[in-house]
Design a protein around this nucleic acid. Structure first.
Lengths: 211, 211
DNA sequence: TCTCGTGCTAACCACTCGGTCAATAGGTTG
DNA sequence: CAACCTATTGACCGAGTGGTTAGCACGAGA
């Protein structure tokens, strides 16, 4: 019988530890999660965790970086679409991402609010993502305005800022009032209507899906 | 020399404990704050805290309720104003409140995100405030729409929801990016422009105040 | 075969935690 | 004065914390 490659097995238990830590850190937080709990959840000895990760902080950082990975997606500029479609696509990506990663979004939000010292690093990464997204949005809005397809009284910068604020508002609405009528589709419809004055095809704008 | 009334002194130390706990809980959180720290900060013995408050949870709840007090302001319906002015007033109150109570807002947000079991009680109170505010906004918007002073394609409900989301967005923008250009005045200007198509008197909509 | 590094564990360590308790000082009441 | 009550304290407790250490199993290289 082929014995298991010990190196592979080590990687396996390391992974198991990180997965357990991810779960626990994510829904309990840093201080409220003990290494013994992680060990129990991962079905390893506590000492093994300290063999793989030097300190609790170390483990936490590893988990944090792992959770952060899916956030670095590139908003591939699909140039075959016009600006309007690209903007809506961007908004939709934001909304769907939040919906699909609600847990980690919640986790990072709590982290940013809470632990300043650990937040330093995280904060700058999130800020980078945030401003990148906003800049993209701003330039697209500027282009759309130039072409006249989205004429408003305010500048592209302020429109982007306002739009992003509204999106963040949807985010916290979604995080806190899970049963709210503000699902991504309705939110997108409302944004479309606000930006371009369209009423959407067959969907209503009052936050209620047509039965 | 008149001896201090012991009852008064007791109330004093109780107050001192609560103030210390308020500070510590607010910027460290529940689990990261120890009773010994509270005792040190309040310059009392730890045992005294447990004489005044049965458990740590008890103390926390007392602090929480105290912090929550300023949130229960009544949006006095100033009927001498027209709907438009009332709406703007409402929005302004929201924005100014967030600015002036940033710390406790941050604290409650973290609390809601984090500790579900303790959040139950808090959550319902916040939800109550939230829906009250939204209902008021909705009815005012409906009135304004009836009078034609605010004509949009969407219903009052969805407009209120969208507006509130935008406000929440401003909130988190304000909490996280302290140096952002989105101060309450600019935000209010943008909302006014969005709702009523006004450009404001002398203020610009691009988030920069006129020098 | 002996050693050596890797992966892993039980038992342990010093320390902090929330919480308790006996004791105290001082005021009030009998 | 004695009994009692309120406000307060230092010393203490068991439980649990992050982290360490001695040692074990085992495969690879000498």
């Amino acid at each position: 019988m082929a014995a298991v490659d010990p190196q592979e097995q080590a990687q396996g238990s390391r992974d198991e530890i990180m997965r357990a830590a991810m779960r626990l850190f994510a829904d309990r937080g840093f201080h409220e999660t003990s290494m013994s709990e992680v060990a129990r959840e991962a079905r390893v000895s506590k000492a093994l965790i300290f063999w793989h990760f030097k300190t609790k902080e170390d483990l936490f950082m590893a988990v944090l970086n792992r959770l952060l990975e899916p956030y670095f997606i590139d908003f591939g500029e699909e140039t075959e679409l016009d600006e309007r479609a690209q903007i809506l696509k961007l908004v939709e990506m934001y909304l769907l991402f939040v919906r699909d990663h609600a847990n980690s979004v919640r986790f990072f939000l709590a982290q940013l609010l809470h632990d300043e010292h650990r937040g330093e690093n995280l904060g700058s990464q999130v800020l980078q993502l945030y401003t990148g997204y906003r800049n993209l949005l701003t330039s697209l809005l500027a282009q759309a305005q130039q072409k006249g397809s989205c004429a408003h009284g305010y500048t592209a910068e302020s429109a982007a800022a306002f739009l992003l604020s509204a999106l963040n508002g949807f985010l916290i609405d979604f995080l806190f009032m899970r049963d709210s009528a503000l699902n991504p589709e309705n939110a997108l419809t409302m944004v479309r209507e606000w930006l371009f004055g369209e009423s959407g095809q067959g969907s209503r704008a009052d936050g209620q899906a047509v039965a």
